[in-house]
Amino acid sequence: MYRRLIEHLKSWKESQNRKPMILRGARQVGKTWLMKEFGRTCYKKCAYISMDENEVMEEVFRDAFDISRIITALEIAVGFQIEPGNTLIIFDEVQEIPRALKALKYFCENAPEYHVIAAGSLLGVALHEGTSFPVGKVEFCDLYPMDFWEFLKACGEDGLADLLAARDYGLISDFKNKYMDYLKYYYYVG
């Protein structure tokens, strides 16, 4: 499967002024899959931490925002050493531990060498009252449901997808029945 947004994440990885990334999107649009796939394909290691019902991480972020202490805790949790630039740190469902979201500010200010990406459904709506948001210290990226072009790629129909991208309306018209069948399937699957 291929999601176009991975190209934006690759540019973010190479950016000299990179800030922690927050991936926003509705439930079930593929945020977790995209972050893990990005980590798998673009980094040597991927440190995935789900904040959902994670009492250990809740305790880790309850104390002061000492990044070296947080990194040590993350390394223990994932079972390997986190190398700046070579390891993608993923905080999934970050809205469940608002202080983890606030910690992104300190990654930006005190440890920009670490590549951190966070995601959560309804992020911004589900934040708890009294929790500050790291305004200006994070970048945002929005993931939407899979578009028709991505759907064709996921179905193994690279040729049809390439015709759409090339806007070759003559050939597109020649294959209109095939496009219509896939469009119905796309609508049905959602």
Rank of each mutant, 00 (worst) to 15 (best):
G30I: 06
A111K: 10
C108S: 15
C141H: 05
I117C: 11
T32Y: 05
K102H: 09
L88G: 04
R69M: 10
K45D: 15
L101Y: 09
N54F: 06
I97S: 00
T131A: 13
M21A: 12
A119K: 12
R62S: 11
Q95N: 00
V56P: 03
S50E: 01
L143C: 04
N54K: 07
L23F: 01
R27Q: 10
V29N: 03
E53P: 07
V29T: 09
K137C: 13
N17Y: 12
R62N: 08
C141V: 13
D92T: 00
A103N: 06
D147L: 10
E75K: 04
C108K: 09
L104A: 06
G39E: 07
I89E: 07
F61L: 01
P112F: 02
F65K: 02
E93Y: 02
I89D: 05
E58C: 00
S132W: 14
P84W: 11
F140E: 07
F140G: 04
E83Q: 14
A26K: 08
A119H: 12
E58R: 04
E55L: 13
F38T: 07
P84K: 11
G136N: 10
F61A: 00
D92A: 00
E59W: 09
P134D: 06
E139P: 03
I97V: 12
L101P: 06
E113N: 13
I82Y: 04
Q95L: 01
I117N: 01
G136F: 12
